[in-house]
Design a protein around this nucleic acid. Structure first.
Length: 370
RNA sequence: GGAGGGGUAGCGAAGAGGCUAAACGCGGCAGACUGUAAAUCUGCUCCCAACGGGUUCGGCGGUUCGAAACCGUCCCCCUCCA
C-alpha cells in the first residue's frame, strides 16, 4: 500500500481526528492543509519557499499539466516532483474540478468528458482511465479518481445520474491504476445537498475499496450552513480507518469546521489567490493590504506571526508594492498566507491533542471574525 | 509678421444644437475571491443636508425655447512659412 493512515487521537468533545499520514515521501501529522500548485508551481513561490510555508504535502493538477506541457514531459523529469524540484509529497487532482469550472467548454458522457481547449480550440477527451494514466505519469503519492463535480444545487435526478456515473468512473479508474503500491488512489464522494445520494456514494465507494476518501462538490457556491450540515452528516459514514480529504476548502473558519467534523486533509487556492489580489489573512481577520488605511502602517501583516515576511516587512511597504504593481507584493503575501494556514493547522492539532478544539474555535472566531 | 490646428472632469481622450453631469482608458477609492482559464472580476469616482438639488466643458459677451457644441471677442498652447 502506498499510504497508511494512523488515527492517533480523537478530541473527546468533538469529532476532530488527530492522525499521521504515511506516504512514500514523508509522514505528515493530520489534519493538514495542502497548498495548491496546479501547474507544478504554487503560484509565485519557489520550491524552497513552499517548503517553508507548507507541511510538506502539496497539490498538482491533471488537466492543466496534461494540456501543458504534457504529462510525457513531466514524466521525463521524474514526475512533478522532479519537474518542479519538490522533495516533499504530492497529491494530484484528477481534472474532475475542471468539469465544474470549465462547464461552458465541456461535454459529459458515460465514456468521459470532452473539453474544448480554451487556447487552441482542440477537442480533448478525458476519461476515467486517461485521468489515471496521466496521474501515473505525474507520479504523485496520492491521486484522485476522475469525478464529475456538479453544481451543488443540481436537481435530484441529474445528481443521482451524476453520482452513479462518478461511482462507475471510480471503479474504472481503479481497474487501470498501474502503481497502487506507489500511488494511493482516492474515491470522491459526491451528491450535492442530497443526503441519501451522499450516503449511497460512500457505501459504493467503500465497496470498491480505496485507501482514502475525498469529499467533493462542496465549497462550490452553496452557503456555509449547507456545507457544514453536510459535513456533519457525512462524519458518521466516512470510513474511520482511512484519511478523509475535503477538497477545495481553505478559509480559516471552514478549516476549523471541517476538522470538527472529522476531516483530515484540505487544499485550497484561496490563500494564494487572495494574496495575489491583495488580501492577507491575519489572526485578527482578513485585511485588504491595498487599502489606504495601511499607507503609513509600520507594523507587520500580522503581529502574531513569525514568518519571514512579518519579521521583515511593514504593511506600508507591502501596500506600496501592490500600488506599484510590483510582483514581490504578491509573493510576500502568498508566502505569509500559506504560513498563516500552516500555523493555524498546527494550533488545531495541538488543540485536538488536548481535547479543546471547541474552545479554540470560539477564541479563533472571536478574534478573526469579531 | 503670415497660414493652419487646438484648449472637455486628477491625467489622456470622445462628443460638433436637445437622448450629456458628459462615452472610453488611465489613475484613485472600496469590495469579491474556497479540488486555479484568476497579477482576475465587480462597484464608486464634479459638489451637496443627496430616489432630490447645485455648479461645469479656457474667459467674457451673444444667437436660440434650449449651447460643451453656433457667432463675436479676448487669453493660452502646438505645427508650418517668413
Amino acid at each position: 500500500m502506498a499510504i497508511k493512515y494512523e488515527l492517533v487521537h480523537v478530541d473527546k468533545n468533538s469529532g476532530a481526528r488527530l492522525g499521521v499520514l504515511h506516504t512514500p515521501h514523508g509522514s505528515f501529522e493530520t489534519p493538514i492543509f495542502m497548498p495548491v500548485g496546479t501547474q507544478a508551481t504554487v503560484k509565485t513561490l519557489s520550491s524552497k519557499e513552499i517548503k517553508e510555508v507548507s507541511d510538506g504535502l502539496i497539490l498538482g493538477n491533471t488537466y492543466h499539466l496534461w494540456l501543458q506541457p504534457g504529462d510525457d514531459i513531466v514524466k521525463e523529469h521524474g514526475g512533478i516532483r522532479g519537474f518542479m524540484k519538490w522533495d516533499g509529497a504530492l497529491l494530484t487532482d484528477s481534472g474532475g474540478f475542471q468539469v465544474f469550472s470549465l462547464a461552458d467548454i465541456r461535454n459529459i458522457s458515460e465514456e468521459g468528458v470532452t473539453f474544448k481547449h480554451h487556447l487552441s480550440g482542440a477537442t480533448l477527451n478525458l476519461t476515467p482511465e486517461k485521468a489515471i494514466e496521466i496521474q501515473n505519469n505525474l507520479g504523485a503519492d496520492i491521486i484522485m479518481s476522475f469525478d464529475e463535480c456538479p453544481p451543488f444545487h443540481s436537481d435530484y435526478d441529474y445528481m443521482k445520474d451524476s453520482v452513479l456515473r462518478t461511482i462507475r468512473w471510480a471503479k474504472r479508474g481503479k481497474e487501470v491504476h498501474q502503481f497502487p503500491e506507489k500511488q494511493a488512489l482516492f474515491g470522491i464522494v459526491q451528491g450535492g445537498p442530497y443526503k441519501d445520494l451522499r450516503k449511497m456514494c460512500i457505501e459504493e465507494l467503500t465497496k470498491i475499496d480505496f485507501p482514502g476518501y475525498s469529499i467533493g462538490g462542496l465549497s462550490v457556491g452553496e452557503t456555509k450552513k449547507e456545507m457544514y450540515d453536510m459535513l456533519e452528516y457525512l462524519k458518521d459514514y466516512m470510513p474511520k480507518d482511512k484519511p478523509r480529504y475535503l477538497m477545495g476548502v481553505g478559509s480559516p473558519d471552514d478549516l476549523i469546521m471541517g476538522v470538527l467534523n472529522g476531516i483530515d486533509m484540505f487544499d485550497c487556492v484561496l490563500p494564494t489567490r487572495i494574496a495575489r489580489h491583495g488580501s492577507a489573512m491575519t489572526s485578527n481577520g482578513k485585511i485588504v493590504i491595498k487599502n489606504k488605511l495601511y499607507e503609513k502602517d509600520m507594523g507587520p501583516l500580522d503581529s502574531n506571526c513569525d514568518c519571514f515576511v512579518c519579521k521583515n516587512h511593514t504593511r506600508s511597504y507591502i501596500r506600496h508594492l501592490f500600488k506599484g504593481k510590483e510582483m514581490l507584493g504578491q509573493r510576500l503575501v502568498s508566502y505569509h498566507n500559506l504560513y498563516f494556514l500552516k500555523n493555524l493547522m498546527k494550533q488545531i492539532r495541538e488543540a485536538i491533542k488536548e481535547d479543546r478544539l471547541l474552545e479554540f474555535k470560539e477564541e479563533f472566531f472571536k478574534k478573526y471574525y469579531g
